[in-house]
Design a protein around this nucleic acid. Sequence first.
DNA 1: AATAAAACTGCATAAAACAGCATAAAAACT
DNA 2: AGTTTTTATGCTGTTTTATGCAGTTTTATT
Lengths: 249, 249
Amino acid sequence: MLKKERQAHILHQLNIHNRVSSSWLSESMQVSEDTIRRDLQELAESGKVIKVHGGALSLSFSEFNINNNPVYGKDEKQRIARKAISLIKNNMVVLTSGGTTIIELAKSLPRELKATFISGSIPAILEYCNHPNIDVIVIGDKISKNSKITIGADAIAKIKSLRVDICFLGINAIDVQHGVSDDDWDVAQLKKVMIESAQKVAALAISEKIDTFQPISICPLQNLDYLITELDPDDERLEPYKKNSITLI
Amino acid sequence: MLKKERQAHILHQLNIHNRVSSSWLSESMQVSEDTIRRDLQELAESGKVIKVHGGALSLSFSEFNINNNPVYGKDEKQRIARKAISLIKNNMVVLTSGGTTIIELAKSLPRELKATFISGSIPAILEYCNHPNIDVIVIGDKISKNSKITIGADAIAKIKSLRVDICFLGINAIDVQHGVSDDDWDVAQLKKVMIESAQKVAALAISEKIDTFQPISICPLQNLDYLITELDPDDERLEPYKKNSITLI
DNA sequence: AATAAAACTGCATAAAACAGCATAAAAACT
DNA sequence: AGTTTTTATGCTGTTTTATGCAGTTTTATT
């Protein structure tokens, strides 16, 4: 087998699998690992593959493309935020959960928007505070360290006493069978009452969370009014969610 | 599975769930926990994740800590903070007001201190959150934009229901005749009830605020147990405050 | 304060990378 | 054709890297 052939074969395999291991290549083409190593070295030097210990990765390998922006998945979250904002009208009272998507929403709020935001998420509150025209109401209680959100009976009681126009939930998992679910019991309780206290409920999720589930159930799909992802509302991945009278945005 | 693959997988999981546990990763990728630990270590060193005991957190979960605008009189406030901390013992319940001096206090808390902190000041809460051994309780209510602190009937009622070991007040004005005073009516109300709810009250003030007064009175000197400034307790400027059974620190 | 889980340390090992050499085939040149 | 040069490949021994394991220390939780 000629050198060029071999290298072409390697590139081909990389296109298919996004990864190859030296040992496997050596085996499948019946050449020594040294030869493979030298092939990979050349391909890497001419920038066609990414060489790593034990093999090579395709250029399209996520880390090197996506990871140029420091916050993973930030663009997606900003798209979601923009869509979510279209639901907020002046003088509305808005309840928000925690999570990075919600923080992105908080950061993206247009300056001229005038509304009341209620939340127990410290980072979100901080963002709301920096906004010129937004009234901020804090849900008090004990803070859960890892999610930086207030949780507990007081928080739940306070949320129950509310009746807000719309509630934005940053969700961790959603699928047709289980509905919205989470892996933190306290946070799940909080989200449950948030849903009850809101006229409209919007779930915010990057598409990677679609069709996943976690141990603690929050609500069935029927309770949601909007599902907002970074995808086009007509994307086929969202098809199963259409029949549940959820508005896809 | 190649190392980079694994690390990319970890980042991907983090993107979805915001946090991952080492044990789960180790299980799901069939490698030892040591390997995972080393992966997380590398990712943390290159600043792609935040390593915590038992796993790792997504970066986007701490990026709101970039709040380092210069503080007026920072050195003095740090000195005050150090003195104030000497009053806090393990397992105490501490109530704090807002203000930059209090935030300096929050930042200076020693890692090994184990206590419960209660506050309605968002910046202070954020600092408490980043401390490993401190339980944080948030006083909820409407936020006063300029002081980033919760104010209102709910906050006052909640504080009244407390009985804390010690209360730290960042104060705006103090003099012998009027006692502690302030220029914000809401904040003053809040501080009044804080004082009532605490066994001991410590007032924190840089020396510039000594012997000044403002329109709204909070309490007479008699209600204070400690007065903490950046000055030496024997400084002559503090002489008038000694006879009021206040401990100068 | 006691306990269990996780992190670290140092070591062992296997796999992979590397450097240098040998060789054989291919290419280039006389 | 014969010689030299270049290129490609494999081999040997050494170095580096990746990973797991055992024992200890640290951290979190109750």
